[in-house]
Design a protein around this nucleic acid. Structure first.
Length: 232
DNA sequence: GCCAACGTTGGC
DNA sequence: GCCAACGTTGGC
């Protein structure tokens, strides 16, 4: 799950939420997700599901800590009902909420911050053999990283993580060991070549995915159409 | 129902 | 700050 550690004001509200902020509050409602696929993933979450806490849209993006689901999906309407709020959605109302959130409980900080650039570097290896210093990751680990939606898709703010992948990342955060390997962001090719197993991304296939996501919205169509539209 | 235009995300 | 990727909107 992605959060932004740096201040950014959206319609008058600062959306900053860093690992420091998280540690201070222990548990927090994951409000503000306004993407169907991300919402559907949150609806699938069950109590105790493990979460990677990711620092996004910042100088050094990467995995900053660990968390778990402490409350299963419920309507995100605090923010939705106030028309002045940045997450306001006129198509959602109290009876027929469109957006949901889970509560997430802080577990721990990553002893070693796991930068996206490192994960990318590992995902870009032509083989599945980790660099010597990261031997403990194993070939399985490299393959898990190669398959992460974080690598293959980007954008989506809530993503699935396999149990194995979560373990690999947590072990990395625990053990570190990449201080002496270079994983400079190479400024070479503009188009990133898709990794094996990446979801196909032709326009047509993306449109189909979107349609699926919207369909899995379980509200009857008429309720969406009839949703109250507040003034202003 | 298609698809161009537009808006947002988010790495760099 | 740039801009590629891609989700969303709306005209037809």
């Amino acid at each position: 799950m992605k959060a932004e550690p740096d201040s950014r004001v959206v319609k008058g509200k600062d959306v900053k939420f860093s690992i420091d902020d998280f540690e201070g509050v222990e548990s927090t409602p994951w409000e503000g997700v306004r993407n169907y696929e991300a919402r559907n993933l949150m609806k699938e979450m069950v109590l105790g599901d493990k979460v990677l806490f990711y620092h996004s849209n910042c100088k050094n993006p990467g995995i900053a800590g660990f968390a778990e689901v402490s409350k299963e999906a419920y309507p995100d309407q605090i923010t939705v009902l106030a028309s002045k709020h940045p997450y306001f959605d006129a198509k959602s109302d109290r009876e027929h909420p469109r957006w949901f959130m889970v509560d997430v409980k802080f577990i721990s900080r990553a002893r070693n911050f796991v930068p996206l650039s490192l994960l990318r570097h590992l995902a870009d290896l032509s083989s599945a053999i980790p660099p010597e210093a990261l031997g403990y990751v194993g070939q399985d680990g490299i393959n898990e990283i190669k398959a992460m939606p974080l690598i293959t898709r980007g954008r989506l703010s809530v993503q699935r993580v396999s149990a194995k992948c979560w373990d690999v990342i947590q072990t990395m955060a625990e053990q570190g060991g990449w201080d002496n390997i270079s994983f400079e962001k190479k400024k070479v090719s503009k188009t990133r070549h898709p990794v094996d197993g990446a979801r196909p991304t032709t326009r047509h296939q993306r449109m189909e995915r979107l349609a699926d996501d919207a369909i899995r919205d379980d509200e009857p169509e008429e309720q969406i159409i009839d949703a109250l539209v507040p003034s202003e």
